[in-house]
């Protein structure tokens, strides 16, 4: 491929070296905003140039508005944080009305994360969004508690996970990404189940369940007692799971969990991720995602390689 170097240098974030494809989408680069850490994008207006990202995975959207959990919802932990937000969101209609047009205009790729408490709720939100313009893919958050199964997460049971994906698959032709929870004994079982059910890609990992106790009050600090751990503290766990899932499924992987640098992102790509998402690091440094894109570009230039050529290389041999 011949590329005018000076021109490429001016538009490094969409260099062919960074291009990646997954679930039928071509992304200008492999760096996405992780769901729940970037709102609906506009919140970071003025702080992040979203045109330089691969895309945005939105905060989870449900068919009806969800109020979210009671506070306290947040705690800082060693090299990370716990959150128990409870998927507060304004509902699909308000999302489409208030946020979607901005996202579609500004963002190279719009991945809408969807949530539900029953399979019917997942189907309803997917069917609603299927009719809206400007959405490139749906990411199904299967970590939500299943209220018909006593609040047990859909994502911890291969059959329940597959049932959600199948139901959503029936109501939309949009590319489907299943977001996997790490809170399972064997994540490859869930990955294989959603692949068989028609998912076009998987993203992993969601947060790891944890807790923190307020020693002064002698009580759990979070009102929800448990929360999801994110940040650099979880990166080795996330990386191990991406590695395992890469060896278990054929569909593309979006890797995430504690990425703060291009060096971290490269590890996920080498473990088998075709794209990566940056989450909690954005809270600390909003420009982290753009820095990661730049770092990946510099690496590819220096090493005379491309993102596509790096996916899974750490496994050695053929996939």
């Amino acid at each position: 491929m011949t590329v005018d170097v000076d021109d490429e240098e001016k538009t490094w974030w969409r260099s062919p070296l960074l291009r990646t494809s997954l679930a039928g989408l071509t992304l200008q680069n492999p760096v996405l905003a992780a769901s729940g850490t970037f709102g609906y994008g506009i919140e970071y207006g003025g702080l992040v140039d979203v045109t330089k990202l691969g895309g945005i995975c939105t905060k989870g959207v449900s068919i009806d508005p969800w109020p979210g959990n009671r506070p306290p919802r947040l705690a800082e932990t060693p090299a990370g944080m716990l959150n128990a937000i409870g998927l507060q969101n304004p509902g699909a209609a308000a999302f489409a009305e208030d946020y979607l047009s901005w996202l579609a205009e500004q963002t190279p790729a719009v991945v809408v994360n969807i949530v539900g408490r029953t399979i019917e709720e997942y189907s309803a939100v997917a069917a609603f969004l299927d009719r809206k313009a400007g959405i490139d893919a749906l990411e199904i958050n299967i970590s939500c508690p299943n209220i018909k199964k006593g609040g047990l997460s859909f994502g911890t049971d291969p059959q329940a996970a597959a049932a959600v994906v199948k139901a959503v698959r029936r109501v939309t032709s949009l590319p489907l990404i299943a977001k996997l929870t790490p809170n399972v004994t064997d994540i490859t079982q869930i990955a294989c189940a959603v692949e068989a059910a028609g998912a076009d890609a998987v993203s992993l990992i969601n947060t790891i369940t944890g807790m923190i106790i307020d020693v002064n009050r002698r009580r759990p600090l979070l009102a929800n007692v448990f929360g999801g751990l994110s940040g650099p503290a979880i990166m080795p766990v996330a990386l191990r799971m991406v590695w395992q899932v890469y060896e278990a499924v054929k569909i593309p992987i979006i890797g995430m969990g504690g990425i703060t640098s291009a060096h971290d992102a490269l590890q996920f790509i080498m473990a088998g991720a075709r794209a990566v998402a940056v989450g909690s690091a954005t809270f600390r440094r909003p420009d982290t995602m753009v820095e990661v894109v730049r770092g990946l570009y510099d690496y590819c230039r220096e090493q005379r390689t491309s993102i596509a050529a790096l996916v899974g290389v750490a496994h050695g041999g053929a996939h």
Partner: peptide
Amino acid sequence: RMACGVGACLGCAWPAAVPESHDRDSRRY
């Protein structure tokens, strides 16, 4: 406590005052 400061993480939610007449499910932050 807040993580982002810009309205993205939803960590600093505070219960909005709701009139007495409303039921518990009308809670809003």
